[in-house]
C-alpha cells in the first residue's frame, strides 16, 4: 500500500503502525516521539494495534530547539 511518512511517499506491506515504524528504523522505545495518522494522535500504547490503510498520512515528531 501507499503511505505518506513525514511528507515522503512510500510503499510498504507493514500491517501495523508499530511494524512500519520499526521497518523505517525508528527506535520505538525512545521517549520524546509521538505519532499522528491523518491528524489524529495515536498514543504509544496503540501503535501495535493500529492497522494501516492505503493512503494513510503519518507524522512522526520529536522535540527540537525552539523559542
Amino acid at each position: 500500500m501507499k503511505l505518506t511518512l513525514n511528507g515522503r511517499l512510500l510503499e510498504s506491506e507493514c500491517e501495523t503502525l508499530l511494524a512500519l515504524l520499526r521497518e523505517q528504523g525508528i527506535d520505538t522505545e525512545q521517549r520524546g516521539i509521538a505519532v499522528a495518522i491523518d491528524d489524529q494522535v495515536i498514543t504509544r500504547g496503540y501503535w501495535e494495534g493500529r492497522a494501516l490503510a492505503d493512503g494513510d498520512v503519518i507524522e512522526v515528531i520529536t522535540a527540537m530547539q525552539g523559542g
Binding site: L5, Q24, I26, D27, T62, A63, G66, G67
Partner: peptide, 18 residues
C-alpha cells in the same frame, strides 16, 4: 521552550534537543 518538528528518519544520528 522547545519546538515540535518531524523526526529525522533518514538521519537517525541527528541529535534531539532532549
Amino acid at each position: 521552550t522547545v519546538s515540535i518538528r518531524r523526526l529525522n528518519i533518514a538521519d537517525r544520528g541527528a541529535g534531539s534537543v532532549l
